[in-house]
Amino acid sequence: MITVNGDPLDWHPGMTVQDVLDAKSYTFRMIGVWVNDKPVPKGEFGTFVIPDSAVVQAIHMVSGG
């Protein structure tokens, strides 16, 4: 189990940042991800593997208006 923005999410071995974004339907382009307080570069979303019990912050930047 991991938490994403404070909510629990089932974890599986090999789970990547992109898997998390897909599971949460986070499609926004301006999104920043921190895993256990460490930023993950956008280019690594598809390869960065999330450990079990991780605290993930998927931060949507504001735009528009």
């Binding site: 930023p39 570069p41 931060i59 930047m61 504001v62």
Partner: peptide
Amino acid sequence: NDVEPANNRIVNPPKEAA
């Protein structure tokens, strides 16, 4: 904020990055 520096989310913690 409809464009942000490439490293905005690397060098700033989440709340500041916004």
